[in-house]
Design a protein around this nucleic acid. Structure first.
Lengths: 213, 213
DNA sequence: GGAGAATACGAGCAATCACTCGCATATGTC
DNA sequence: GACATATGCGAGTGATTGCTCGTATTCTCC
């Protein structure tokens, strides 16, 4: 996985170009622009030329930093994986998951996820798809993996008696439930958004109460 | 809405061509082929030329029956809406929903839906998308509406005390949960598929038990 | 201040795709 | 069997798009 991440800014020969500070800034700008375009147009309909235009650069410059569209998605996915990991770390900072009620545990997981989705609307264009095209699936695979890893760890901690296959299924299902609710929550606003977030928490908690025995 | 539906077989001048039996058969063949192509490639990546080839006809013949790609999706959606309605009618034939336990009710709704998804794998390529492109959204809007209508009717029957806004939210959320689970269920097979279907039933039932009060 | 590398440009190429058009054949009706 | 219409064909078109390439500018380091 780490070697795959490194490849993302490696040359065809495996030689990584040495980025100047300007280049690093450009990469961030491109990713920001890509997020906005993905939200506006959807991933499939988004064109690389549109991303370049949104970033205020030429198509040629874009391809200086990303070899293709999927690699842009991958860049965003890496960002998001880091942001989510940080959020979850903060949510459980100095807290023992075992000591929480199921409702509190679910709240601590979902509320930051909701906040993250609201703050980064492009996130769901990459992650909340039930049938991503192959290239996008590959780009977001590490993100998916890290999310499932965290979910599986929580399930294992709460229900150590569960057979591994059952635990895996429960964490996949719970993740899927959250994934499905995010577009609904983000699409709403104000009080309705909070109500939908509450429904998401309620659904996941209710499911887990049954599934974890 | 009804006039929009009629427009689908209407000419530009509003004159509907009179189909021969041969033409009706072709339409069915094209829809069958489109379903297979959508499953193989996904809706966005599927090309109309590929659909024509899969159906064993020329692109020109395809456009004899469908004005564009979205209209093919709409044709499939109409088929699916009818199939689902029939399935649900059969599931509740001579049964009073009020007299069932929540678990039985959920089972009667979800099991046919699972069977339908397994039998028609293209269904989820149209329906189980969290962010469909605008054209597809328009094509599947009637299908979405009829599904939500049925869900809302069941919710209203079970929880007449719920405010309309709350009832609507519950039925939307429940529908979304089912929608999200279908790709997981269909992707699995054999015993694992049945276990995932059981998780879907369990999640929806657990949610509804809380949400319906 | 000069060499080498990174950054930047943007016109345009090659490929793809939704859809058309002119014309031929099949079908149903009188 | 003749007429009208439905069905059928498939090469081709106009538009789009991911991506390249030749070239010009800016940065870093000596």
């Amino acid at each position: 996985m780490t070697s795959a991440d490194d490849r993302s800014d490696a040359d065809v020969d495996g030689r990584a170009p040495r980025r100047q500070a300007r280049g690093q800034r450009r990469i961030e700008e491109i990713l920001d622009a890509a997020g906005r375009v993905f939200v506006r147009e959807g991933y499939d309909a988004a064109t690389t030329n549109a991303v370049a235009k949104e970033a205020g650069i030429s198509p040629g410059s874009l391809y200086q930093y990303f070899r293709n569209k999927d690699e842009i998605a991958q860049g965003l996915a890496v960002r998001y994986a880091a942001g989510l990991a940080e959020l979850q770390r903060a949510a459980f900072d100095g807290v023992d998951p075992q000591g929480l009620s199921l409702e509190d545990l679910v709240r601590r997981v979902i509320d930051p996820v909701v906040a993250f989705n609201v703050a980064h609307p492009a996130f769901k264009t990459l992650f909340a798809r039930t049938d991503p095209p192959p290239g996008l699936a590959e780009a977001t695979a590490p993100l998916d993996a890290s999310i499932h890893e965290r979910a599986a760890a929580l399930v294992a901690a709460r229900a150590p008696q569960l057979a591994p296959a059952d635990a895996a299924r429960v964490s996949v299902v719970a993740t899927q439930l959250v994934r499905a609710m995010m577009p609904l929550v983000v699409a709403a606003s104000g009080a309705e958004r909070e109500r939908l977030a509450a429904e998401a928490r309620s659904a996941v908690a209710a499911y887990l109460r049954v599934a974890l025995g």
